[in-house]
Amino acid sequence: MDMPEWLKPGLVGAAAGATALAIVGFSWGGWLTEGSANKMASDMAQAEVVTALVPVCVQLSKMDPLASQTFLKLKEASSYQRRGILMEAGWATMPGSSEANRYVATACLEKLSDEF
C-alpha cells in the first residue's frame, strides 16, 4: 500500500509529540508507573502504621519496671546503638508479635529522646 506524501510528516510529528508528551509527563507531570505507585502506597502505609504504634512503644516503656536502667543505657550508648537497646528492652515488640519492629524502635527513640 502506498502512503500519500502528505501523511509521512504527520506520522513523524505524531510520534515525536507522543515521545515528548511521555517525557514531560513522567519527568515534570507527576505521572507514575504502577510499580512506583505501589511502592509509594506501601511506604505511606508503613509510615502510618509506625506512627500509630509509637504510643504503644511509649506506653510499654512507662510500664517497664526496668525503665530507669534502660534509659541509663540509652543515655550512655552511642546513637547507632540506641535502637538495639530499645529493641532488646522489648518496647518495640508490639502485642501479638514475636519480633521487635526496627521502624517503630527508631520512631519511638525520637519520641522518648527527651526522657534520657
Rank of each mutant, 00 (worst) to 15 (best):
L112W: 07
F71N: 02
E48L: 10
T93R: 15
A100N: 00
L66I: 01
S36C: 00
S78T: 14
S36L: 07
M1R: 07
D2K: 09
E88T: 11
V56N: 11
S79F: 09
L66M: 14
V49M: 10
V58K: 08
P4I: 05
A41F: 05
T106N: 09
G17W: 14
V49E: 10
M44L: 14
Y80D: 14
C108S: 09
Y80V: 09
D43R: 15
S98Q: 12
G17T: 15
L72V: 07
Q81V: 00
I23C: 09
L86A: 15
S79A: 14
L11S: 02
E34S: 09
F71A: 08
M3Q: 08
L7G: 00
G25I: 03
D114R: 12
Q59Y: 05
P4N: 11
L21H: 01
L112E: 07
E5Q: 14
P9M: 08
E76V: 02
E5V: 06
V12E: 14
D114M: 13
S98M: 11
M63L: 15
N38M: 09
D2R: 04
W28F: 11
W31G: 03
L21K: 05
V12R: 05
L21I: 06
A47D: 07
E110G: 15
V50K: 00
K75H: 13
A105K: 03
G35A: 12
C108F: 07
Q59V: 02
N101W: 05
G13N: 05
A20W: 05
T19C: 13
S36N: 05
S42G: 15
Y80K: 10
D2Q: 11
S27L: 09
